[in-house]
């Protein structure tokens, strides 16, 4: 195993997902690509950014990057190969990033089961269905 794409969203479970990925990377000698999808709210099309302030995109990207780096400070820096962000719906962005970085494994978190989760389909379930590579879904209590 050479490269693990680790999907980290803005939720409190992200550090736990990263911790799992880091343990696995240590054991298998893999490096981590830390990925965050930048989500544009559906009621605000991308064109709005171009029209109003092009720097907004940079701002969102920079923000996500800073957040990723903060979470990453919890694990040994040599485990982290790079950071990646794209504007995409999370499941799609994760699948694409998995391909782009030719990851051997994608790790995503998934919150508790039951309730709406079963009906609405989580990002994790979509990644499992759509990704063209191995996926590990990590349960987190949060």
């Amino acid at each position: 195993m050479k490269r693990i794409l680790t999907a980290l969203d803005g939720s409190p479970r992200a550090p736990l997902v990263l911790k799992t990925a880091a343990r696995l990377a240590e054991l298998t000698g893999a490096k981590l690509v830390l990925y965050r999808a930048l989500v544009v709210p559906p009621e605000m099309p991308r064109e709005v950014f171009a029209m109003t302030d092009a720097r907004l995109e940079d701002f969102l990207r920079q923000n996500a990057r800073t957040e990723l780096e903060r979470i990453a400070s919890e694990v040994r820096p040599e485990l982290v190969e790079t950071f990646a962000t794209t504007f995409a719906s999370p499941w799609d962005g994760i699948c694409q990033a998995g391909r782009e970085y030719d990851a051997d494994l994608i790790i995503v978190g998934s919150h508790g089961f039951g309730g709406l989760d079963r009906l609405l389909g989580t990002t994790a379930a979509k990644v499992v269905n759509h990704a063209d590579r191995n996926v590990m879904v990590v349960r987190t209590p949060l």
């Binding site: 799992t20 051997d104 494994l105 998934s110 089961f113 989760d117 079963r118 989580t122 994790a124 379930a125 499992v128 269905n129 990704a131 063209d132 590579r133 191995n134 996926v135 590990m136 879904v137 990590v138 349960r139």
Partner: peptide, 21 residues
Amino acid sequence: LGSVAESVVRMAPCPVLTIRA
């Protein structure tokens, strides 16, 4: 359609690793 794997991912309380390679 959901696959068995998807269903297990949704319901299992532990990590699930799906193999596609």
